[in-house]
């Protein structure tokens, strides 16, 4: 997500459109990115490495905050039992 101090003109445009379409209650809209990342295995340092890439590649800490949520993928027969799904909220 863009940091609070960073102007988000996209969000403002959507906020105005929502108000225009009959929802004057909308106070603000901020637009970010949502990524789903499938990862094999669950090594001890997996999450730390993911955080590293969140900082270096997936988000720009100058203008964005990110949130990393890990969740198990419920396995079908073919799915790997250890597969994990990380949801990364960014931009």
């Amino acid at each position: 997500m863009p940091k609070a101090a960073v102007l988000d003109p996209q969000g403002n445009a959507v906020r105005d459109a929502m108000r225009h379409l009959g929802m004057p209650e909308v106070r603000s809209v901020r637009i970010g990115k949502y990524m789903e990342i499938d990862v094999d295995g669950q090594n001890g340092d997996l999450e730390a490495r993911l955080h590293g890439l969140c900082r270096d590649l997936l988000s720009n800490p100058v203008i964005e905050d990110y949130e990393l949520q890990a969740s198990e993928v419920r396995g079908s027969a073919s799915a790997k039992a250890t597969a994990r799904q990380a949801e990364v909220r960014s931009e």
Binding site: P2, P9, Q10, A13
Partner: peptide, 17 residues
């Protein structure tokens, strides 16, 4: 250069969109 950290700050979407 900004993304690489060689220059401070960042460039974001134009205010006009």
């Amino acid at each position: 250069l900004c993304e690489a950290g060689l220059l401070p700050g960042a460039l974001v979407r134009n205010r006009s969109l």
